[in-house]
Design a protein around this nucleic acid. Structure first.
Lengths: 250, 250
DNA sequence: GAGACACCGATTGTCAACAATCGTTTCGGG
DNA sequence: CCCGAAACGATTGTTGACAATCGGTGTCTC
């Protein structure tokens, strides 16, 4: 997830951005697992940063929906129940579908070229096994496409779900089989953009998201279904998702 | 109602919740206008709270997309260009439509009853001119309906847009004509739920959101179109909206 | 008089010490 | 042996002072 630091102006003194980025990567690459505690003091030592900075980073991650916090109890990597994951993926499908529907058709040649370039780099990194770069280029590929829909609000919502589900997709990101398959699917998308139909692209983009979900579910097995319910209760009114209550709100 | 503190666990030491709530209300009722600066010291004095608390409140409002911040320059009430507002409303329409499509049909009688009750209270408050309560009940009405779609992710996304657009809808919230019309539309929705069709409800829910947008646009006139572009640049990589990559910004 | 530079006030960002809170363990009584 | 209460250790939340930064103003030179 490339460069939040460069685009997001405020909460990112260089060091803070680094910490956020690092934690994000530890989550997506599975070194930090869901429900794992994030103790401020430990992180403070590990990164050699003041606890204040760590707190800011956690707040930011919380805002991104990656971390859940409970007052006086600390932060943990956010965990999703199977039901929640299903709901999230339904929305992801809806939004991505909408994005594809809004891409001006036939596709702009410059955009197509850009996607092809990204895909080339992507393929190379897959070969080389550079997971970190694969991740970055994967994001770039999809968001270059989604941004063509020309609706910032839509792009932001997809981005939000994208980030939230980092911890879910961590099960597929390291799987060579899945990586190869994703690469092929990207190639197929480009083909549809170049000489195919919008409907064909729609099918591809939609089909593209489910394998990671299946992998996640399999990793959690049936076990997760009951367990997660406990956790859901344990997390209480999880503050991570900026859930909001019936405040006056308006 | 009024108990943000009880439902949202972490970021809401009672006092903090109050400040956030208060600022939110000042924005929706138009006492704080878009682009208005929010100086920490001033707010600290006004609320008699420590600057630290004010900072937290601003961070929270930023997370909600109501406030934009720039490093070392402070916070301001977030402003939307006309183009952005259009994009946001398109998404609002999409999501609300999806919610209606997901409500189990025929409608659950208990839910219908609940909506009717809310609508009764709502109507009374409209008569009484209690704007604050009107707002609260309006939210409650819509979210009771949206939650019936049974997808937390969807509800949260609608909620997010709902909050973000508080500053937009402030133009209609005080208009008696609009209030009466909204009340009638709510009644019509209940009628469709009770004995009508899903398609009828869809049309109503969709039509319901546009008047506020029109009012906003009229209030800004053609003037806003050019002006807002300057502002967009001035706000730079606005950090409020958690905007993503490559400063699309244009 | 115009432009560049340096200074200054206003404002935000950072830090380290202190206070409050939670979960757990231990101790005493039944 | 079991149960409840109090004290402890581990963590998080809060505060006030200090440092860094930005925009603007005044001045000096050409």
């Amino acid at each position: 997830m490339a460069n939040l630091a460069e685009t997001c102006d405020h909460p990112s003194v260089p060091e803070l951005a680094d910490i956020v980025q690092s934690l994000k990567e530890e989550i997506i690459f599975g070194r930090l697992l869901p429900r794992e505690r994030l103790v401020e003091g430990e992180l403070s030592d590990r990164y050699g940063a003041s606890r204040h900075l760590i707190r800011s980073a956690l707040t930011e991650l919380q805002g991104m929906g990656l971390v859940a916090r409970r007052r006086n109890k600390g932060a943990m990597v956010r965990d999703f129940s199977v039901e929640e994951v299903d709901e999230i993926y339904e929305m992801r499908a809806l939004l991505q579908r909408e994005a594809v529907l809004r891409i001006p058709w036939p596709i702009d040649r410059a955009l197509l070229r850009e996607l092809q370039d990204i895909h080339c780099s992507y393929s190379r990194c897959v070969e080389a096994g550079d997971l970190r770069q694969v991740c970055i280029l994967n994001n770039k590929f999809h968001f270059t496409m989604f941004e063509a829909a020309n609706n910032r609000c839509l792009t932001e919502m997809i981005q939000r779900i994208w980030t939230e589900t980092l911890g879910i997709r961590c099960y597929s990101i390291g799987d060579p089989i899945w990586l190869g398959r994703a690469r092929d699917e990207h190639a197929a998308m480009i083909a549809q953009l170049a000489t195919g139909s919008r409907e064909g692209l729609l099918r591809l983009v939609d089909a593209h998201i489910w394998p990671a979900l299946e992998l996640y579910k399999r990793a959690h097995g049936g076990w997760h279904a009951s367990k997660s319910r406990q956790v859901a209760r344990h997390q209480g009114g999880v503050a991570g998702g900026r859930r909001m209550s019936a405040g006056v709100e308006s």
